[in-house]
Amino acid sequence: MATYKVSRSVVIDAPAADIFDILAAPHQHPEFDGSATVREQIEGPQRLGPGERFGMQMRAGLPYRITNRVVEFQENRLLTWRHWGTHRWRWELEPVAGGTRVTETFDYSYAFSFLYQLAGWPARNARSIEQTLVRLKTLAEGRGRPHA
């Protein structure tokens, strides 16, 4: 099977632990979501850990709810979740000169890959990831960072 992924990176002038704390807090996801689809956390923990489930109120045209499960977790380094459709959102954090390189990857190779391409989702996901990384950078560097 071919692998279908959309991935973007940014260097953020903040320690990996601070960035990871934002990513691992589902109630903060609407604050950095660049797709404008994530509305609010409706169930789950305040901070994610291995195997944790969390539900989000979403809106893409119509409102809906989605439940995600953490499938990869390495404190301050890696966080991946997926929903019923098996698509994965993966966050990798790597210390570099000047801060932390954060890479977000949307992996849609697990199901419906052909339909995703046909519908133009890879390009939309790329734009959303780019906006997400801008918003995450702003939060993590302290400009408007919420208090958990």
Rank of each mutant, 00 (worst) to 15 (best):
A2P: 13
V6I: 14
S7C: 05
V10F: 01
V11K: 05
I19T: 08
D21Q: 01
L23Q: 02
A24Q: 10
H27K: 13
H27C: 05
H27E: 05
G34M: 08
V38C: 03
R39F: 02
E40F: 05
I42H: 02
G44P: 09
R47A: 09
R47K: 13
L48N: 03
E52P: 00
R53C: 11
R53H: 13
M56C: 07
M58V: 10
M58K: 08
R59G: 00
A60K: 13
A60W: 12
L62R: 15
I66W: 15
T67D: 15
N68A: 12
Q74S: 14
L79T: 06
R82I: 11
R82C: 13
W84Y: 15
W84P: 09
R90A: 10
R90Q: 13
W91C: 07
E92H: 03
V96C: 09
A97K: 14
G99I: 05
R101K: 12
R101G: 01
V102C: 02
V102N: 02
D107G: 13
A111I: 15
F112C: 02
Y116P: 10
A119Y: 08
G120A: 08
N125W: 11
N125V: 10
E130I: 07
L133A: 01
K137G: 03
E141P: 06
G142Y: 02
R145F: 06
H147Y: 10
H147W: 12
